[in-house]
């Protein structure tokens, strides 16, 4: 009897990320992982790198001191030295301690050297829990979008987590890969078995619709899908776009959709003020001013540090999306 390899397998985002790391390290001995607690037995504080140091050794899966500037600086040096490092920064807030290495070095070295020094570096970082308070909770992706020279990638599904991470590792330039803690543990979907790549810079239409476009990414894709379902039951047709990468930004898909629906909501966990949605709203408005039936609406976090108290509303909910869509439709 022929053994049939299943084409996909149901797995969590955590398992998909772990699978991508195993495949990348297996395929190329130049791929390395470094960061705090990344080696076994702990295998990363979220266990994403579980098993890797046991299989590939501590030279390639290197637990580091608690020294983010040192970690990213060393990763930049490894990249200059011909390796493909994956550096883990446990919480996105901790990128503040190594911004110099990310912004002034990783992102700029190719340009400043006239193309002689590429930095093929992937920085994996997590965000999305409020249980540690405001210093372990902030979505800072807009900062990195504002820094030419680094790609910004945010998966919403387990399949994309695998495919986008493998693309980041292959990429000849630095990539910031943002893992949302809720999604890591609770998002389960069909993930291609074996190597799987999702090209950077291509948005996905998660749900087609023709009255309003909701443009989002990361964990808010779920919120948008829940809202779209609820609205469909009221007879309102919403198109949901999952950007998947914020840099490069797939404006073609966004503009094509809004040209059709003529109404748009941008939605994210990051702060509304100067958030990624501000850029999207501006580009939509500049390109489709005469076509829009209503101003583009932005939904994101309010202007305060992330509150610890669960009773304080912070990230947009499906109800917020439903209300925004209602507003656009004049209801």
């Amino acid at each position: 009897m022929n053994e049939q390899t299943p084409l996909t397998e149901t797995m969590t985002m955590a398992a998909a990320l772990n699978s991508a790391l195993h495949l990348a390290m297996d395929a190329d001995s130049k791929v390395l992982l470094l960061g705090e607690d990344v080696a076994d037995p702990i295998g990363g504080v979220l266990k994403i790198s579980k098993g890797l140091s046991t299989k590939y050794g501590r030279d390639r899966v290197r637990p580091t001191p608690i020294a983010e500037s040192g970690i990213i600086g060393a990763a930049v040096g490894l990249a200059l030295g011909g390796y493909k490092p994956i550096a883990e920064i446990m919480f996105m807030d901790f990128t503040t301690v190594c911004l110099d290495q990310i912004v002034n070095h990783a992102a700029k070295l190719r340009y400043m050297s006239g193309g002689h020094t590429a930095v093929p570096l992937t920085i994996r970082t997590g965000v999305g829990t409020r249980r540690f308070g405001a210093q372990h909770a902030q979505n800072l992706e807009a900062w990195f979008m504002h820094t030419p020279g680094i790609k910004v990638v945010v998966p919403a599904t387990a399949a994309d987590a695998k495919g986008l991470l493998m693309s980041c590792i292959d990429d000849p330039d630095p990539c910031l890969f943002i893992e949302h803690f809720d999604l890591v543990f609770t998002q389960k979907d069909e993930v291609p078995v074996g190597e799987h790549r999702v090209p950077l810079g291509q948005a996905a239409i998660r749900r087609p619709g023709d009255q309003v476009t909701v443009i989002t990414y990361g964990t808010q894709v779920r919120t948008a899908m829940a809202a779209a379902q609820e609205l469909a039951e009221q007879g309102i047709s919403v198109e949901v776009i999952d950007l998947r990468t914020l840099v490069p930004l797939d404006m073609d898909t966004v503009l094509e959709s809004v040209e059709k629906t003529r109404r748009a909501v941008v939605l994210h966990d990051a702060h509304t003020f100067c958030g990624p949605g501000a850029e999207l709203a501006a580009q939509i408005t500049e390109n489709l001013w005469g076509e829009l039936l209503a101003p583009v609406l932005r939904l994101g976090a309010g202007y305060s540090p992330v509150p610890f108290a669960a009773g304080l509303d912070f990230h947009p909910t499906a109800d917020d999306v439903v209300a925004a869509v209602g507003q656009l439709l004049g209801r």
Binding site: S69, G73, V76, L78, A79, L80, G81, P85
Partner: peptide, 8 residues
């Protein structure tokens, strides 16, 4: 730190 990475 970059020299450290080149050293690794």
């Amino acid at each position: 730190p970059i020299a450290v990475g080149l050293g690794i």
